[in-house]
Design a protein around this nucleic acid. Structure first.
Length: 435
RNA sequence: GGGUCGGUGCCCGAGUGGCCAAAGGGAACGGGCUGUAAACCCGUCGGCAUAGCCUUCGGAGGUUCAAAUCCUCCCCGGCCCA
């Protein structure tokens, strides 16, 4: 590896040291090509939702890295292929998207991409529906299908595993690979695209495109993949118990987004800094070293969370998430000023504190039942769960542990007369607010 | 279509008339830790409630003092035969 890296120019070397290089077509050829001038490079994104998620972020950031080196990124949103469905990594036939959903998804994704890639400079956003829409079957079979053998296609792991499953694979999904190959060919022909990048599950599809272009135009283009992310605990990357981590703040608030990275385990933090931030490799090495010396400061996680949140939501949001976390995870809530509390309200689930029996209010004593408040805020799933929580000491009022014997909250405990910060366990917060 | 085995709590899975809110494992959650980490230890894990009560074992009926367990019909899945 060491002897190769000497001949690899900047970007490839960079990707390699960031653990973002899994497979590629002939490395030395690709290296030569990248060294000789700007290359157009494409990465495809499935528009299955109106927002990107963390899984997509890697790819977009790879494009960004290329763009920073002077290359030209082409972000392809798969309007057409989204209607077909990629069998890669899927055990079941996929639901196809209808035109309206697709249009909505495309516009959502476009907005997010604009923050990460510089379209005013030379980045391009394309939708493969534009050139697939008018493609006739005959044309496709003659110019594309002709160059692919079924033997080869069937040999692909993604296809084979599905053929062996009970559900099978539809002809439609089977053809996906060729559509993606066609995209590469089209971009090669019309945008002079010479490199396709993707996650390692895309390798088969990328290779199919490289083959197609060689057969049709007798030119050598390139492909490159990064390893699919796994976390050391084996859980799927970018997923929480609640589901995917989205870039859309409506789906995953910037605070939660920030928290996702704050809570990354020590084992993964170095790799994630490399793959998700634009910090230099050497700076990351220093950070990781410092972190290993004093892991309790969580400097690496803090930096990771801030950097990624800044990239996606902007540094203002990142700072807001950071200071909210400082309050929520610090101890003496009484010292927090009201403005900060209001800021926190933007970040964590908040609801209205109402002085009614349903809201857990006892007019006779002017106090609230903590059990009822916990249920009302969703911090407990039932009264039994709430009592259990109190018994095991997992309930905190204004960051102070509450006990079963003192399960009432009096009005004078409200901060600034109107805020009440509830917490269940270490990291589930809820802010109650009255008028 | 015939045969056969099965459908149990978030998941896997024991239980085949009362001792069953239902073993065990996993996940999850909480506590102890420390660091919003991991590992580990402990605990919780249907609901309401002071003992106790109520609602659950694919669905609907039935037998019985008593059913997840027995009977009838229906729905769904695996396997074998056609």
């Amino acid at each position: 590896m060491a002897d190769i890296s000497r001949s690899i120019p900047c970007v490839l070397e960079e990707l390699q040291s960031r653990k973002l290089l899994q497979d590629s077509t002939d490395t030395s050829l690709l290296a030569q090509r990248l060294a000789s001038g700007p290359v157009s490079i494409y990465h495809g994104i499935d528009p299955t939702a109106p927002s990107l998620h963390l899984g997509n972020l890697i790819g977009v950031l790879v494009l960004r890295r290329f763009q920073l080196e002077g290359h030209r990124p082409i972000a392809l949103v798969g309007g057409a292929t989204g209607m077909v469905g990629d069998p890669s990594g899927r055990s079941e036939e996929r639901n196809l998207l209808d035109a309206d959903t697709l249009a909505a998804n495309l516009s959502g994704i476009r907005a997010q991409l604009e923050k990460l890639l510089d379209f005013d400079n030379n980045a391009v956003l394309v939708n493969n529906y534009d050139w697939t829409r008018n493609l006739t079957l005959i044309e496709f079979l003659r110019d594309t299908g002709k160059h692919a053998t079924v033997n080869q296609m069937v040999a692909k792991q993604s296809v084979r595993s599905r053929m062996q499953s009970d559900a099978g694979i539809s002809y439609t999904e089977f053809t996906y690979m060729l559509m993606q190959a066609y995209d590469f060919w089209w971009l090669h022909t019309n945008h002079n695209c010479e490199l396709q990048v993707g996650g390692s599950d895309q390798w088969g599809n990328i290779a199919a495109g490289v083959d197609l272009i060689r057969r049709r135009t007798a030119t050598q283009v390139h492909g490159l993949t990064w390893p699919l992310l796994t976390r050391s605990d084996g859980t799927k990357f970018g997923k929480t118990a609640e589901g995917s981590v989205w870039l859309d703040p409506e789906r995953t608030s910037s605070y939660r987004f920030h928290q996702y990275f704050m809570q990354v385990t020590d084992e993964d933090v170095g790799k994630m800094l490399l793959q998700f931030t634009m910090l230099s490799v050497s700076e990351i090495a220093e950070l990781v070293e410092a972190h290993q010396r004093e892991p309790q400061h969580r400097e690496a996680q803090r930096r990771l969370a801030f950097e990624v949140t800044s990239l996606v939501h902007g540094s203002t949001q990142a700072s807001a998430a950071e200071s909210a976390a400082k309050i929520l995870f610090g101890s003496p809530v009484e010292k927090v000023d009201e403005a900060a509390l209001q800021a926190v309200a933007q970040e964590v689930p908040t609801s209205l504190l109402v002085r009614t029996p349903q809201g857990g209010f006892d007019a006779a004593t002017g106090s609230f039942s903590l059990v009822d408040l916990l249920v009302a805020t969703g911090l407990a799933t039932s009264k039994g769960d709430a009592r259990r929580g109190l018994a095991e000491g997992s309930v905190y009022v204004n960051n102070q542990r509450a006990s079963s014997s003192a399960a009432t909250v009096f009005s004078d405990q409200l901060l600034y007369g109107r805020y009440l910060l509830l917490r269940r366990g270490k990291r589930r917060h809820h802010l109650l607010r009255s008028h």
